[in-house]
Amino acid sequence: MAKIFFEDVVKPTVFSKTKISFNLSALYDKLWEYAIFSLAATGAIIIVLIFVFIFMKAWPVFQASGLKVITTSNFEEQIRHAYFAPLDEQLWEFGLLSLIVGSLTTALGALFIAVPAGVGTAVIICEMSSGLLKRFLEAATRLLAAIPSVIYGLVGLMVVIPLISDRLLNVELQIKYLEYFQLNGYSMLAGIIVLSFMIVPLVIALSVDAINAVPRKYREASLALGITKWRTIIKVVIPAAKSGILAGVILAAGRGIGEAIALSMVSGASANMPSLRHGFVFFLTPVLPLASAIINKSQAISVPSIEAALFSCGVILLVICAFLSISTRIVESAVRRRQGLD
């Protein structure tokens, strides 16, 4: 009797119970996976939203100005007129060329200094120093990377600007250029100097990673051929690390283009067009990079047309930086493929 009872009743219950709990845990698992996936997907959607929102807000300017947005430069005046225009007669036409030139000149100038200096420092860190000096250099690089841009701006303002105006400017020069712009130390050059210090730690960090990743066997092969240690570094190690170093350079370029605060503090805050005709005064021109323009004119953002103008600065920044981000990977893998590394 007891045996029948057990077989008929208990066994099926146990069976069905495990089945139910198994299903439940599978369900939990699935739900959990969906939750994780949707969070990950939000991140992917955000970038689309950024593009959409910024393009939408900037659209009136592009519609009104067409290609003139990137081919003409009369930004300061246009902003002034737009500011005083009545609300129902907004002026939507803007030309951002001088801002684009301001962004490119400061970023390229900074790269011109920071890339050789950064790679050089990386070589010293990886190959030429040891012990305490190496640790100091590494710590200094990390700290430089962590110092907020507003502090770079502040130090630039209090150190670099007076230096430029004391050493490079005089009254004659200032009077001579008064018809174009005011020479007072706030300049492209100040922007380049401050920006160099800001992006050099990036170049160093990525170059250090790239150089450390070069296998020892290349160094041994080169040394065994009677090539000196220094020439081994120059001709074998750095070329082998080229892809990683290039990635760092592109990353630094993006950082330079996008820097807003520090440049708005030192680069001059007025959208002049630097001209090579001015000789070395080219570098002393006060310029207004795209990113700094958004900060500088943000007080007037309540005017719809100015808001749209600042968003069109954002569009150009976004397009440049997205292009740089995508090209990082493409360039990196193209170089590695050419070298035969993968």
Partner: peptide, 14 residues
């Protein structure tokens, strides 16, 4: 330069 060497792992430069 007088004494050349070939290693265990082939190590041509990239």
């Amino acid at each position: 330069k007088k004494v050349g060497m070939v290693f265990q792992q082939p190590n041509p430069f990239p």
